[in-house]
Amino acid sequence: MIEVQPVGYALGAKVTGVDLSRPLKSDEIQQIKDAWTKHLVLVFPGQQLDPESLIAFTKHFGELDNYDSQPFNRHPEYDQVMLLSNKPLNGKIPPGANNGQNWHTDLSYTIRPAKATMVYCIEKPSVGGDTMFASMYAAYESLSPKMRAFLDDLEAVNDVSLISARRDPAIMEAFKRLNPPVVHPAVRIHPESGKPALYVNDRVRTFVGMSDAESKPIIKFLCEHSVQPRFVYRHRWEVRDLVLWDNRCLTHLAVGDYAPNEFRHMIRTSTMGDYYGRYENPEAAEAAHKAANITSHEIAAGVSTLHD
């Protein structure tokens, strides 16, 4: 029997009594989806998964992303699986070793941001390496009525160049070529819950129709406001944890507080979102399409010497 136990006040629940490596019944899937809508983050401890079983489970939540937006982070055998790992692969540290170390929503710098994300822990450092999640429902609801009304009409420019200060320059150049800035609403309505959620995080550069000087203090305030402890669940990973979260109504942060000589080795899948944004510069669409036609082999060759 599936049991759901809350693990955080604002968001987060632990799900037990289910083996995700086997085919699930329709009522089990529905129970998990209902819990996901309610709690935003679900933790499934003690799972025994490989890339294929992780892909199979993820398919219940929509169309899988094949990570065209960042092909250099793909698993070497599965395009639909991303490596989140500092464990050497063929003698090199994978480009995704430092992924996610600022507050963000997955793939918000793309036209079709992620819906569901799933991360499975294979190895973890002895101390640290947690992931923090913040409810953007709670962040929005706690704002004043005037601020909410102001944000309801705003659109935000999401810029991939803001993802992290620790990226290799060659990786960042490829990211920017594949992902020109995109526009999304500052507040999104969740299609299942019907609730509004703030959609502003550290990867927002400016607001449409406002100058950078006008936008920056508002963005700074919203980013600081949204990650207050009362809105946050901090997950302390255990090996064989699978964590599923909803990118439409939360932000998250991978905490880089662990020894660099210890391994944090995880695999990730995500589903394509149910909403489409637009490019800040319409001409960028054609350039991005051409960039996306670069083969995985060509990109891999271009970054193969980054960590020699």
Rank of each mutant, 00 (worst) to 15 (best):
V119S: 06
K38Y: 09
H104L: 05
H104I: 01
T105H: 10
G91N: 05
I55Y: 11
P71M: 01
L40H: 01
E52P: 03
K124L: 10
D68P: 04
V18N: 13
H104G: 06
L84H: 14
P71C: 05
G12H: 07
W103P: 03
M82V: 14
S126P: 05
T117K: 12
P113M: 12
H39P: 07
L64C: 12
Q70G: 12
Y109Q: 11
K33D: 13
Q30I: 09
S21W: 07
W103R: 03
T105F: 02
F72G: 00
I55R: 15
K92E: 07
K38M: 08
N86L: 01
G96I: 03
R112K: 15
Q47C: 11
N102C: 03
K115H: 13
D65Y: 00
P94W: 06
A116D: 10
L64D: 08
Q101M: 11
K59E: 15
Q31N: 03
Y78F: 15
P88N: 00
V18L: 15
G12Y: 10
V119W: 07
R74S: 05
N66Q: 10
L64W: 06
L54K: 09
L24D: 11
G62E: 05
A13S: 09
D50R: 01
P94A: 00
L107V: 15
F61N: 05
P76S: 12
